[in-house]
Amino acid sequence: MTDDPYRVLGVDTGATQDEIKKAYRKLAKKLHPDLHPDDPGKKSEFQIISAAYDLLGDPEKRKRFDAGEIDAQGHERPERQFYRDYTSRPGAERYEPGGDTGEYEDMSDLFSDIFGRRQRGSGGQSYEHSFHARGRDIRYHLEVDFMDAARGAKRAITMPDGKAIEVAIPAGLNDGQTLRLRGKGGPGIGQGPPGDALITIAVRSHSVFTRAGNNIEMELPVTFDEAVLGAKVDVPTISGMVAMTIPKGVSSGRQLRLKSKGFPVGNTGHGDQIVRIRIVLPEKVDEEMEEIARRWRAHQSFDPRETLRRAI
């Protein structure tokens, strides 16, 4: 890699800003990676000219570079993701010809070509037909509450033409999951069938519950006397309040499990709800509590930090 951004852009050090811009523009047209999806080397070449232009295209930075205040490397751009870096991922077909009209589901150009030729070769007659195509898929983005995702819900979305369609959100739906409503997309062309509506669901986070796989996690604040003596407390779950027994002598961080109170798994089971204990003292500790603590301290020998000391 050449260090000198002037050499990279092929201009001399006295070039005007305009000449630099023109030089960059010319190189960018030649080297832009998205104009050469099949040439992996173009990406690094383009990064180099971009970095050079970042420096010289900005009169301020150029002045500082000329004065030796900053070096060429110091201002290289972070690795950029280009469009072509996304195009082999699932879902990227939608920008390709026919990609969101479902041509793919029937036969690709490549194969219709192969099979089409074979058909003609074996004496089959080529048939003329007017143009039919499946309608375009329409994508929707729908945000739902955590509880709706947990318990299932019905929501209405408005189509671009003003019509409303009802979407049934299945219980246990994951954030980012896509629902496909057959035939609810754009109208077909000719006698082609309509496209589909693809609804990607984003699940809003909840103030109490978080999802971990099929389990639901939550933190349960308890008082010190509940932690010491044990208690029976009401705990919220996605299916309502549940009475839970806190065993005697729990510590903060201890996890208790409410069986089958998590997200539905298939039609049969449920995940669990994991309840993490957190011991909370009142904002103002009164004299009585201090007195109890003082008395306890006077004769205790419990050391919760013993292992910490042994760690070094």
Binding site: D34, P37, D38, R84, T87, S88, Y95, P97, G99
Partner: peptide
């Protein structure tokens, strides 16, 4: 560009 990506996918 889109055609080229389609060809590459195929």
């Amino acid at each position: 560009i889109d055609r080229l990506h389609k060809s590459q996918r195929e």
